[in-house]
Write a protein that binds this DNA or RNA. Structure first.
Lengths: 247, 247
DNA sequence: GCTCTTTTTTCCGGTCCGGCAAAAATGCTA
DNA sequence: TAGCATTTTTGCCGGACCGGAAAAAAGAGC
């Protein structure tokens, strides 16, 4: 929980690292106190490890970071790192997992009367609309940020773990969807399908955002994806290329 | 390319191991000849390694299989195994990748005039409709088969690599979709979104199939998922539980 | 302060993982 | 068939990974 070494400031503030449920008023605070010192430290350590892994991977390059380095930067033993994560890749993917889980929790927290897709849309807007994919709010859209993420995401192991994190979080999302629609993820296909589809939409939007050559804002992409989904993903008019504007 | 040791017969014929493009007539055969001995052996080795990995993992348990064992069973050096796959998990996931890629190729091969979603539906029916998730055709639905897959899929590393395989294959599928709809995966969101969504639907169906307590056939699940998608995934009527059948 | 539980640490051996260069296999042409 | 170019396989090796086991340290509750 130290991180005093290198890896300064918000070096690699990306991949979905955001507010950690600093939400409402008293209730949450009570909960955090009741949580006890142990669990608080645990989460701090976890966050520090994940964050530091990302930062180091970005600034030194994936293969030039050993687990030993990360542990040292956070002032814990190498073995402790392994108690939290199975490897560097999982530590990085944890940031993505946290974000997706946050979305799921937000959906759960929406007013019960709100229809499913409104709740989902709202949750996604909260999580993605404002910024790019980075820090909460920074007028400077963090210049090299997108490139940095793109870089670490080239690593196969990272891709794999991020995908898995996505899937894990979908379990949570499926529960939220089940609760809202009166279905049960354990027995019904529907909630799992919706969770997976929402995950796919976010994934496609993120990928597009990450690779778009003239950069484009993320929020609208997510919205667009959701609109396509709602419409049943009809094939677009085949480009009014030249002749035959068929149909 | 030997596999003479243990791991007999179709022990672990699952995870999507199927026909390897034994498709049409002459053209394909020419292609296969022109392919040369090298590439043929290469693919055979790859397939044997993947298959053997799955078989051994199922019969001995994930952690009781070393790369060394797999290599030995296929009569290649351990180093050669690593030339093909980064690890056991990727070797297993390769089966899933092959299946998904096969779907993508089938979509590409459908008549150009056919609308996108018909082509997708047809491709999925070809790949999934007949059997469960196992060997091409066996009247005996391979009893312990589903359990075996469920078992290996509990391994985090396998989950991660399978997810990644899925994503990789989606790249191929996105191209096929782009070709059919006049969009470009490199610049448009649409083909990537559809590919990801189809992947999500298959994934949800497979998960459900894998866990359904009274087992259910896979084909209908896929169809159901596709129908939901086409309809825009509307929330189901909130169970006519007791009172208030709102709206 | 004294237990009880949970987390961190130390220690350690087996496995993984990939770079490198030699050797073997394949493809091609004279 | 011999000979050369290209590709694949192999052996060798050192560093990093990975997780089991038990002692030590740090909260939690009384």
């Amino acid at each position: 929980m130290d991180e005093t070494t290198g890896a300064g400031a918000g070096v690699g503030a990306g991949l979905g690292e955001g507010a950690g449920a600093s939400g409402a008023a008293g209730g949450a605070e009570e909960a955090r106190r009741a949580e006890g010192l142990r669990e608080r430290k645990k989460r701090q350590t976890r966050a520090a490890l994940s964050h530091t892994t990302i930062a180091l991977a970005i600034q030194r390059g994936w293969s030039n970071v050993r687990v030993e380095d990360i542990a040292a930067a956070v002032n814990v033993s190498e073995r402790t790192f392994r108690n939290y994560f199975s490897g560097k890749a999982e530590a990085i993917a944890a940031a993505h997992f946290d974000r997706m889980e946050r979305v799921a929790r937000t959906v759960s927290a929406r007013p019960a009367a709100e229809p499913l897709w409104e709740a989902i849309g709202a949750a996604l807007r909260v999580e993605f609309a404002s910024e790019d994919a980075a820090a909460p709010q920074s007028s400077t859209p963090v210049p090299g940020h997108r490139e940095a993420i793109r870089e670490v995401m080239t690593e196969p192991a990272v891709q794999a773990e991020v995908m898995r994190a996505d899937q894990q979080a979908q379990g949570v999302l499926a529960k939220a969807i089940g609760a809202r629609t009166g279905t049960d993820p354990a027995t019904d296909l529907y909630p799992k399908l919706v969770a997976a589809t929402v995950g796919a939409a976010i994934g496609a939007a993120l990928t597009h955002w990450l690779l778009a050559d003239p950069p484009v804002p993320l929020g609208p992409l997510i919205t667009e994806a959701l609109d396509h989904l709602a419409a049943g993903l009809p094939a677009p008019e085949k480009a009014p290329d030249s002749t035959s504007a068929q149909s």
